[in-house]
């Protein structure tokens, strides 16, 4: 009981630290790829300190509630995802609940942005939801392949089944894993899929009216979502981790690969992105699922 409560407190804190670290590393690596020196790795944390003492502007109750809901959703999501043995409330519904709790964040930000009544925000939200529709096809196909292969909907069971280096990525599930990796930039909203928050086109989209602590919460949400999606990949396809350290190293490898993709690509237009996401990843993940149904 005490350990459980401790885990509930520790895992979001750990996720916050790792997420912020990843954000800093993200900026640093991107800068080095651009032949710049780059900011210090703790720069996102310094930004947070500033943002929380800056003034914030509110457009109404839903403007506040939406961003709070988005961040709360991400925090709950962390509690559901095993982090190298730490998993406080994994047994409350499994992967299906995770898929649904993932909805809190985009919906919260969409509601919050909606009340701010700025057309650029609306365009950004519209793009974000369409993009999600694009990557969700392959995401769901990959998850269903996993759930069918292991015949369970519990994430903990899936991780346990991959013990002793029986990673899903090196099993018949490899195709699903590749598809998941291809769509991950779209999930994280990094290039070439940073369409929803494109600063040069629509002035950061949903985040336009966020200033001060709102932007702070938004950034924390971004850090946590970065953590969540990468941790989910590690859990699902790389066999989780026996302890937090190995888990973190796996996450780091995946994250650095993603950052390289971010560093060198330009941005898709939304139609191009959808066309791409509905073609290659879907072909790969669909053949993965068909393979699984055939060999079972």
């Amino acid at each position: 009981m005490v350990i459980n409560i401790l885990e509930i407190i520790i895992s979001p804190v750990l996720a916050f630290i790792i997420g912020i670290f990843f954000m800093g590393l993200f900026r640093k690596i991107t800068a080095r790829l651009h032949w710049r020196y780059g900011p210090p790795v703790i720069q996102p944390f310094l930004d947070l300190i500033k943002l929380f003492h800056q003034q914030g502007f509110s457009h109404g109750p839903v403007f506040d509630l939406g961003i709070i809901m988005a961040l709360a959703g991400s925090i709950v999501l962390i509690l559901f995802i095993p982090f190298g043995g730490i998993c406080p409330i994994s047994n409350s519904g499994g992967l299906l609940v995770i898929i649904y709790i993932m909805l809190f964040a985009p919906l919260g930000i969409a509601l919050s942005g909606g009340e701010a009544a700025n057309p650029n925000i609306s365009i950004g939200i519209s793009r974000k939801l369409i993009l999600a529709l694009g990557y969700e096809v392959s995401f769901l196909l990959a998850l269903l392949a996993l759930m069918t292969y292991y015949n369970t909907i519990s994430l903990v069971d899936i991780v346990e089944a991959q013990d002793n280096y029986k990673w899903a990525l090196f099993s018949p599930l490899a195709l699903s894993g590749i598809a998941y990796f291809i769509i991950m930039p779209a999930m994280l909203g990094i290039r070439p899929f940073d369409i929803a928050g494109a600063p040069q086109e629509i002035s950061t989209g949903p985040a336009i009216e966020y200033g001060g602590k709102y932007l702070g919460l938004f950034n924390i949400w971004h850090a946590l979502s970065m953590f969540v999606y990468i941790a989910l990949f590690v859990d699902l396809f790389l066999g989780g981790g026996s302890n937090p350290l190995t888990f973190f190293i796996k996450m780091l490898v995946v994250f650095i690969l993603l950052t390289f993709i971010h560093g060198v690509f330009p941005r898709f237009r939304i139609e191009q992105a959808i066309k791409y996401l509905w073609k290659w990843p879907v072909i790969i993940s669909l053949s993965g699922l068909i393979l699984i149904t055939v060999i079972r």
Partner: peptide, 12 residues
């Protein structure tokens, strides 16, 4: 965080 300020909808 610092206290928020409520603004009108058209102040966007």
């Amino acid at each position: 965080g610092r206290k928020k300020i409520n603004i009108a909808q058209d102040d966007s």
